[in-house]
Design a protein around this nucleic acid. Structure first.
Lengths: 227, 227
DNA sequence: CGGCATCCATTTTGATACTG
DNA sequence: CAGTATCAAAATGGATGCCG
């Protein structure tokens, strides 16, 4: 099984040789927010069959970007996590996400799936380090039936799937209401103000939330109208 | 002709719907350093046939990422250039390149092609804004038979294919010597010191060159030795 | 549930031949 | 030189079926 390669001595091409195949970067996206089980990965990626998923995971393992781990008790079930090399794809994935937020989002299409967990990387992508200077706070978000959190520490953010240990504040919103938000280009802070989202916890931390995340103003691409 | 899509309401997935197909990001890489002609694009991308190249270009045009232009006289020949949306893929491509420089480069393989022009994005990827604070200089590089330049202006860099208008300094090196450099993790400044590269022009500008570009120390990925 | 194997209909691609 | 047309090889997707 000759693996296909661009055969270019170029950093971009070498990277795409490793992660440029279909589904691979989305798999990395999933793992960037924490280890995931085989089934959960498949559930997040409609259209990716078990065979191809297994093949992609093996590829990532073989190339040292991911590894199979055993979740600690009481879970005791296999899962996949990124290695250091895999984690460092974060900036590249975030750059793609930022571009997409600006140039490719618009309204949700009927056929499109959505998982609240994707918002986790959205938080990282929209994070404004300057606004977080001197701030130290942990936020927990509950969107629909998913929970994740962001740990802000003086200009840095760590956003992961799962509950926080000691959240300073918790923001809760339904999945539908959240989707309405994003269509509007609104942020969590807006949703809290308007009462669409429920917020509990430290008032100071909640006030800080306002400037922490900024969505890029959406642009439309000048596509040629010729079909 | 249904175009294949991930069907996910996610910025990363939407972006990959547009530029995630094979060759597309490499095409963007080529265009990020300036407009290119059909034939030049194909020459840079061994393995990409004319048919697929034409299809990819049409796709980029239709999606508003590139456009077909007429090069100004005396050239008067068609070429392709990025739109604003296309240019803004730069950060994403650079992030992939930075990852590759750190985790995927190593030695050049026999089968791999190399074009000096790819170094242009390398300059952007390795640029150290802090080292360029207050600096204003234009460098021209001649590697083998290709020429490109970098315009530094107080923490910003603009690196493009083609000669500079008024270079403050010019660095010349053969393609082979340059490839030896990169294998060593050396920079242009090192090459000048060792006499491998020829440098002419403003001494001050050349001194500044030293800190402007820093290659990330290469890491090897912990790949499982099981073949 | 986790994960591999298999079969098959569709797409995508790679390589080449061909035209204005 | 800029692209179309064509065809064989490879990758994908979807459905199962199997086994621990």
């Amino acid at each position: 099984m000759e693996q296909r390669t661009y055969n270019q001595y170029c950093a971009t091409a070498r990277t795409l040789d490793l992660v440029g195949e279909r589904w691979t970067l989305l798999l990395v996206r999933e793992l960037l927010t924490g280890p995931k089980r085989f089934g959960d990965l498949q559930a997040s990626l409609r259209g990716l069959g078990t065979g191809l998923l297994a093949a992609r995971l093996k590829h990532l393992e073989r190339e040292g970007l991911a590894r199979k781990i055993m979740l600690p008790p009481p879970a005791r079930t296999p899962a996949y996590a990124l290695t250091e090399a895999g984690e460092e794809l974060g900036p590249a994935v975030l750059a793609l996400a930022r571009w997409g937020l600006k140039w490719a989002m618009g309204e949700r299409r009927e056929t499109e799936t959505f998982h609240p967990g994707w918002t986790v990387l959205g938080l990282r992508a929209c994070f404004q380090p300057e606004a977080a200077a001197g701030l130290r706070a942990v936020y927990e978000f509950q969107i629909g039936d998913e929970v994740f959190h962001a740990r802000i520490d003086d200009g840095t953010i760590e956003a992961l799937h799962g509950p926080a240990q000691h959240p300073d504040a918790t923001i809760t919103i339904s999945e539908d209401a959240f989707l309405d938000l994003t269509g509007q280009g609104s942020t969590f802070a807006d949703a809290i103000e308007s009462g669409t989202a429920t917020a509990t916890g430290d008032r100071e931390a909640l006030r800080s939330l306002k400037g922490l995340f900024r969505l890029p103003p959406p642009h439309s691409r000048p596509s040629t109208g010729n079909p």
